[in-house]
């Protein structure tokens, strides 16, 4: 239990996936203009990362390791994740049109979200068990959602701010992210 707690605090605050590990920067900067879409993206990523954690762990332990083809990890994982996202999209579209309307637009973006593949690889590198992998993935996804929602809140305020012309758009977003990253540095030493 204590190990899980350490994983969760570490992933959400200390090594925040976006602000200190730099995974998933594209959706972080792309989908953080509105609070509602930030929440939608966060939920979609959490869902896919949890599923991907289980499936990639099983693929690694039941297929790649027994067959001695661990070097195919990158190819196998990206294919698994891409098909998983497609599959989830189809299932949601058939079963829950409401959910599809809320998450549908974000799902295709997730295939190229390096956070999903990155965390799947990290889970294997740290030789986590299936349960720890799942906890680590969900905790990282929560960290992603937290950063995304905070960023969206700040950017909604920035809309009205008088920003110098050269800084508008991407530069001010990056500098905002830098300040958030500084704040998250304060969590170092929490554990």
């Amino acid at each position: 239990m204590q190990e899980m707690f350490v994983i969760i605090i570490g992933a959400v605050f200390i090594n925040n996936i976006v602000l200190s590990q730099f995974l998933g920067i594209c959706p972080f900067l792309g989908v953080s203009k509105k609070l509602s879409s930030a929440v939608g993206m966060g939920v979609a990523v959490t869902f896919v990362m949890a599923l991907a954690a289980i499936i990639t762990w099983l693929v690694q332990q039941l297929v790649l390791v027994p067959l001695g083809i661990g070097y195919l990890q990158t190819i196998a994982f990206i294919l698994v994740i891409a098909s998983l996202v497609q599959f989830v999209e189809m299932v949601i579209r058939k079963t829950s049109p409401d959910l599809y309307r809320a998450l549908g637009v974000y799902l295709p973006l997730i295939t190229t979200n390096c956070a999903v593949l990155g965390i799947a690889i990290v889970n294997i590198q740290k030789s986590y068990t299936l349960a720890s992998s799942l906890v680590n993935s969900v905790a990282n996804a929560l960290g992603f959602t937290l950063a995304l929602v905070l960023m969206a809140g700040i950017r909604e305020r920035l809309e009205d701010a008088d920003i110098p012309k050269s800084l508008q758009g991407m530069p001010i977003s990056l500098i905002t992210a830098a300040l958030m990253s500084v704040a998250f540095l304060g969590f170092t030493g929490l554990l």
Partner: peptide
């Protein structure tokens, strides 16, 4: 030291992009 810590990445890229915008304008 902050420039080689995670925030430094955001600061450096943000400032470089702003500088390029300035030059372009």
């Amino acid at each position: 030291l902050i420039m080689i810590l995670p925030p430094g990445g955001f600061i450096a890229l943000g400032c470089i992009l702003a500088l390029l915008n300035k030059l372009q304008n």
